[in-house]
Design a protein around this nucleic acid. Sequence first.
DNA 1: CTACCACATAAAACATTCTTATCTTGCATA
DNA 2: TATGCAAGATAAGAATGTTTTATGTGGTAG
Lengths: 300, 300
Amino acid sequence: MTTGMNTEYLKTFREIARLGSFSEVAREMGISQPAVSFQVQKLEQELGIRLIDRSQKTITLTKAGERLLRFAEAMEGEREKLRGDLEQMREDISGDLLIGASTIPGEYLLPKMLAVFKQRHPAVKIQADISDSVTVINRVRDNTYEVGFCGIPPEGKDLAFFKIAGDEIIPIVAPGHPFANRDEVSPEELEGEALIFREATSGTQRSLESLLGRVGIDIKKWAPQLVLGSTRSVIAAVSAGAGIGFVSSLAIKGSGVKSARIKGLRLTRDFYCVYRQERVVSRLLEAFIDFIKTYEKSHL
Amino acid sequence: MTTGMNTEYLKTFREIARLGSFSEVAREMGISQPAVSFQVQKLEQELGIRLIDRSQKTITLTKAGERLLRFAEAMEGEREKLRGDLEQMREDISGDLLIGASTIPGEYLLPKMLAVFKQRHPAVKIQADISDSVTVINRVRDNTYEVGFCGIPPEGKDLAFFKIAGDEIIPIVAPGHPFANRDEVSPEELEGEALIFREATSGTQRSLESLLGRVGIDIKKWAPQLVLGSTRSVIAAVSAGAGIGFVSSLAIKGSGVKSARIKGLRLTRDFYCVYRQERVVSRLLEAFIDFIKTYEKSHL
DNA sequence: CTACCACATAAAACATTCTTATCTTGCATA
DNA sequence: TATGCAAGATAAGAATGTTTTATGTGGTAG
């Protein structure tokens, strides 16, 4: 109903008071000039009184505008104090956290998340071990790790889990490769190419095998050109023009390789956060799980 | 980018603290329960900390929640003070205002507007005279009225004006009349009916005549059954079954008569607010004109 | 157990706010 | 005065945000 006065509008208003120009505020705040006009109009409407006299070349706050400015500044001060206090409360959360993660989540998902968490709770010490999904789940179960991140959901009621991200395994090629500018390639076409696999025990390779197996394709019959020990080495080999690799979509951004799609097929899988089902958890663990759960929502 | 913390969310939060239940707050505030959940989530996201513990049957504020509550209350207090001070400033606008208005604006548009203005500026005394459009304009020009409302735009550069509302002259009949349930009637059909006109000098009658004249219809050839002296009497006569009247669409709501439409024809006109073009105007007049200009925007 | 109550989640409807494009006005310059 | 420029206003459509409706989930009491 009433649109409500929000911190953003008040900030705009303070900037107008400071800079004395709508356009300049717009530039400074990275929004368009009409957006500034709009916000001022909204404030004036909500308060039922003119705040800024813009009939002359130079704009001036009205008396009411001056009053609102004081309010906006008081408000900002309170807001700052609030921020500080909440910061403090977050610092109260401290201790050590031992995490296990499988390769893809550990290398491509966790680093950013842990950095944000660490910034939010500076007093926390985190150690993250990287292994494979099965090991992660076992170590969470036996309480070696307090939390784990893996590519397969755990079984049994002793462990709780939730999905943290979706992923897709996609074929990649060097930019000069014939497939580089094609949206889709057919499974038959792949068979004739120089393929680069991961070792058979890797989670990615196993997912690839089982996902293709579901649609009747047996990749064991495809003779790989190379078998490499990590996602990074596959990407490096592909970049060097050694052939076609299959890697997690999460791993390729910024690597310069080109991705394709297999016709009629999405090789998707999910990653999970796993922890022991218990009534009592440490405040730290609770905060961490909570953070992971809401991470996606609050970071784009 | 950030959605910003607005007064509405904080109000919801205070209500939650007071009532201890999302659902109840939803009922009380006339919104749905998911809307309440949503707002709390937004707050928690923005502040990056859990505010309400809702894992048990009864919900409790966390420490951070308690802190936010104090903030919300301080905020509300400041907001209240601001409201009071602005109120005060509005009261500083005082004096007398003499307004002229033609019939339709004077009877159907102004009453509500003046009531709202009066509430906002209690120290102002307003007198509104009702006459016809031409008189209104003349009296504004000679400074008898400070502002005028009329159905025709003024000529000459000494007067400023702007549109305040659009209107349509439409045929009306009693609910039992053969035209009552028809969307449209043709001009020919009208000619044969018992017609009720206003006197020839009325603004409505003149608009009717000129608007129909433009499409080649000369209503002087239509013999009216009755010629009445006011919009209200036309409506009364129509209600009594005396025939077909032509009145402003603004005048008929709640009167019980049925409106029709003349095929292929919209008899539209606008109403204007008129005042003298001067550099210096009284604060009262400025506030009044400003209010009228923004009235439409801020009241639905 | 089972029913119920309270909060969470999802999808779609709905509303607000922003951007782009264009207009108007005042002022400075020629 | 014309002419151009800079600042703000306005309009229409795009992009976001918020709410609703419908449904899921879990805890608690009977």
